[in-house]
Design a protein around this nucleic acid. Sequence first.
DNA 1: CTGCATCCCAAACGATACTG
DNA 2: CAGTATCGTTTGGGATGCAG
Lengths: 132, 132
Amino acid sequence: MTTQTVAQQRSDARSEYNAYLAMCPSRNLLDRISDKWVALVLVALGQSDKRYSELSRQLVGVSQKMLTQTLRLLERDGLIRRELTLSVPVRADYSLTPLGRSLLPLLASVKEWAESHMDEVLAARTVYDSGA
Amino acid sequence: MTTQTVAQQRSDARSEYNAYLAMCPSRNLLDRISDKWVALVLVALGQSDKRYSELSRQLVGVSQKMLTQTLRLLERDGLIRRELTLSVPVRADYSLTPLGRSLLPLLASVKEWAESHMDEVLAARTVYDSGA
DNA sequence: CTGCATCCCAAACGATACTG
DNA sequence: CAGTATCGTTTGGGATGCAG
């Protein structure tokens, strides 16, 4: 009989990956989905499948380079699917995979939190910058 | 009578902030909480209040500079509170504010998603890198 | 239209040394 | 203990030009 609790055993079994460890791949994944553009891209694709140019218009201020890079990384990680239609002109359609769709509600809620708590944060900054 | 739908009116009223617009402050806030270390810091403080050195140990690999910077920014945005005890040696305690606590479950679920879907992402990367 | 390749600058970051 | 300051390197990311 050990001193390890049932809760600890369950915890160990549940998460073999631990984002607090620098060398753990889940740290890398958390960095990836915490990227500047990832939430906006995924939420945009959650609304509907979109073409490259549509995403480019919706994510105001994104450069071609960063949009392409973000899309490639998300595709590599299996979060989005890229379908190329070889017409003239060429056409690229992006959609969420089931895996991406499982992450969508989480990032959507983070984005909504940012929009709905903007006033409070702005107020906090004013206080901090003046008094502090 | 206009052609604007009720859904559109509701949408307009609900979110005056729109993170898709580059100049909107909510874009800035989304960038901030999408930061590399923010989720880890907030989840760590969600477990319990922590001292600077405790955070430093838990977030393996974080540099003093980045930890301090992250904590300052979160404090400025009103997400965490910093309490300094002028003893010898000095002591700094960090805790979540109600605002920070409202964000906590969202980021905690993102962190957990990263840990629990690591295998699928790793598999997707292997497929992409080999075949593609 | 949808990219990729390149150049280049500015910002981010890590390591180190130092301080109240 | 909990930082600040500085420096050197790395990375992010915009601009431009080209290609399928």
